[in-house]
Design a protein around this nucleic acid. Structure first.
Lengths: 153, 153
DNA sequence: AAATATAGTTAAACAGGTGAATAGTTTAAC
DNA sequence: GTTAAACTATTCACCTGTTTAACTATATTT
């Protein structure tokens, strides 16, 4: 690729990804801000999808230290949204699950986020948005490999 | 578009955007974390590109309250990275500029971010990444309009 | 049995965020 | 020309999320 073209693509990528992130976060917050923060929403989603979720697993998935997870979980436990259960075989590990209240709350916020994403995805034609998401997923893969390479060094 | 296809696209979009954001933020932090936070880096970039930058302008661009900007600016002023200058005609407004030290620091972090983005962008063929960024920019436009519509309501 | 590793928590410190109150400075209205 | 309204920026109290280091408790290795 031509150097100039690459430089231009980099600049465009940096500014557009910044802009989309800010705008999307702001719109999501408008929708669910009274119930959950964005991070809390994603944490609940992860716990619900995972069968036996632990702090360590969350810390790896969200790429933060375990103590950051502890803090988030504490707030959600205090609000009666998730619960901790010790593993009887290995008493070090603690499984995290959503309470009934937590499930209802997450279902509600999930739906709002879904509708929001739907409202902009449907403004593209199918081919374009499918190509976009395909490339986006390739990018995710590339970043994962870069991350691994960095840790492996 | 078929409803099922839409649902699938939404799910893929939500998870891939989450993943890319986390991974990218984590990689950028590895590169510049000792000098600046990611937000600080973006703030400096914005100030440098803008001719007469004010708190209000930053607050709008970053979609946060002005008091959040004041806090960030205070930390950067304390470190001698940016400086405040009052407008002589309208003494309410304060212009923000980078000090020499700030310019050097931002140049350094800017370069690192650039190299990082280059290292993954060049793994795509030109046509694919150009299409991707084009659609990404359309998305930014759509989100901006949604934001406006929401505020206008 | 002792050393090592693992899972999770705690505490102090910091960055970033909100919302309400405030200070100071225009601008508009009367 | 004074008063009221609007605007720019800041401060304060409080919240969320993050890191690092120290610590508790339990398993595993040697």
């Amino acid at each position: 690729m031509d150097k100039k073209i690459i430089q231009e693509l980099i600049n465009r990528y940096v500014s557009v990804s910044f802009e989309v992130n800010k705008k999307a976060a702001s719109l999501i917050k408008c929708q669910i801000g009274e119930d959950l923060t964005i991070d809390q929403h994603y944490i609940l989603g992860y716990i619900q999808r995972s069968s036996e979720c632990t702090s360590t697993e969350l810390a790896e998935a969200f790429e933060v230290n375990k103590s950051a997870i502890t803090a988030i979980i504490n707030r959600l436990v205090e609000r009666g949204i998730i619960q901790r259960t010790r593993d009887e075989n290995d008493r070090r590990v603690v499984y995290l699950t959503l309470t009934e209240k937590g499930k209802e709350l997450h279902h509600k916020t999930q739906e709002k986020v879904h509708l929001l994403v739907e409202s902009f995805i449907t403004q593209f034609d199918e081919k374009e948005i499918t190509n976009f998401i395909n490339t986006y997923e390739k990018l995710a893969l590339i970043l994962t490999n870069m991350k691994k390479a960095e840790v492996g060094e």
